[in-house]
Amino acid sequence: MKILVPLKQTVDLVEELELNDDGTDVEREYLTFKLNEWDEQALEEALLIKDAVGAEVTVVALDEPDADQSLYGARAKGADRAVKLTGDFAAGVSSHARAAILARFLESQGFDLVLIGVQTPEDLDGQTGVILAGMLGLPHASVAVAVEPEGDAFKVTQEMGAGVTHQLSIIGPAVVGVQAAREAPRYVPISRIRAAMQEGGLEQQPAAEVEVLSGLTVRRMFAPQSSSHAEMLGGDAEAAAARIIEIIRERGALKV
């Protein structure tokens, strides 16, 4: 079985998000990028399948900031192949363009399953996985919390909200957007990632030239202006705690 896991480097939301000069995008040059957290879940699900029944797991990333780190991190965790698609992606890549590039890459690969993070924080034009499935006419499922091989199919558990899940049986090749792996993503120490880097073996090939535009034009980005804001409690932790006790007593939420 061949499983493909696309990895995306995304803006680290812990950071202050500065806008570029014309206010139409984040200032990518100065931001820190990290592996999209949902892609990490997708990778874990792929590795769980490999552990259980055996599979060849290939991770693939566009050459975006610190992509090598993520690709080698995946190798250290147990991915069999890591592929970097080179090109100039400094201006950011829309989900549609990313899906089109991945579609071209997939055409050159045999695969049974694409596992991809269900979303990223940057999906202004939608989620890459389902767009990719649409472009290739493949079956798909989003918001998956378990993907398990079952005979010649995959049993996919899809989270519908309010404690309800749907179980689907999908015959591959298929694209599944992973919300959460069945287990928390495994940890590898940095020493193992360094060892993987020294070992090398990253495959590189140019990303396909695609002319897929998202069809969207960003007029501006701006921080949301909320109509209300919390009354901030000053002081240190002790003072804030005392004030919180007062407030919840006044509201009758404290049962004393």
Binding site: S95, H96, A99, V118, Q119, D123, L124, D125, G126, Q127, T128, G129, V130, I131, L132, A133, G134, M135, L136, G137, H140, A141, S142, V143, Q158, E159, M160, G161, G177, S214, G215, L216
Partner: peptide
């Protein structure tokens, strides 16, 4: 919703129509 996340992107991918999310 889950249904929406599953369908919106796939219809966009199938038809080439633009998609605005969130």
């Amino acid at each position: 919703t889950t249904v929406g996340m599953d369908v919106a992107g796939a219809v966009s991918g199938r038809t080439g129509r633009p998609l605005v999310a969130y």
